[in-house]
């Protein structure tokens, strides 16, 4: 609203792997299914619940499973330059994080169970701050590997204890 002429923070350059949508859909669907089964069982056991309750939940969940992963994919972006790491994650709440390369402390590479099925991995870059970890989910596995190597090399090149 007030950014009539001032500079604007652009989005990070790269999207994550398109397969991430399927990973998020799988996870969301699994969670939705567990919840739905629980409610169906509750309806069978307890007379106070009507059949429209699980039906309504199913409709809401279907929308959730279809929409949220795609929304997430449109938001998730990352960029690594010579001097900084920049990530953007979230869907309803969008969080952008920028950390200077000189403050990077550790670089984590994690392949979760579901992520491995889709050949994906996540990279987490931590700084000395309790509020400063930058995490990118849904990266292609090989790309993530290369990214970790590069980040580690760059972070090592800067002296000091990064606080």
């Amino acid at each position: 609203m007030s950014d009539a002429a001032g500079p604007v923070l652009r989005e990070p350059a790269h999207r994550v792997s398109p397969r991430a949508v399927w990973m998020w859909t799988t996870t969301a669907a699994a969670e939705a299914l567990v919840l739905l089964v629980a409610l169906v069982v509750a309806t069978l056991v307890w007379d106070g619940l009507h059949w429209w309750a699980p039906a309504l939940l199913a409709v809401v969940e279907l929308g959730w499973v279809l929409v949220v992963p795609r929304w997430r994919y449109r938001v998730h972006r990352w960029e690594v330059t010579d001097s900084a790491v920049y990530t953007q994650v979230g869907w309803w709440a969008r969080e952008r994080r920028i950390a200077p390369m000189s403050r990077v402390q550790t670089v984590d590479h994690v392949e979760g169970a579901v992520a491995r099925v889709f050949g994906l991995a996540s990279v987490t870059v931590t700084t000395a701050s309790a509020a400063g970890a930058l995490s990118i989910d849904g990266l292609d596995k090989d790309l993530a590997r290369r990214l970790v190597d590069e980040l580690t090399r760059q972070a090592d090149a800067v002296p000091g204890d990064a606080t």
Binding site: R97, T127, S129, G132, T163
Partner: peptide, 23 residues
Amino acid sequence: IGWNLRATWFQRRVGLTTLQATT
């Protein structure tokens, strides 16, 4: 040692963000 900018859909709609200077 870093910057976080977090904005929900409501905040983005009115051009606000919550800025964090991490340390």
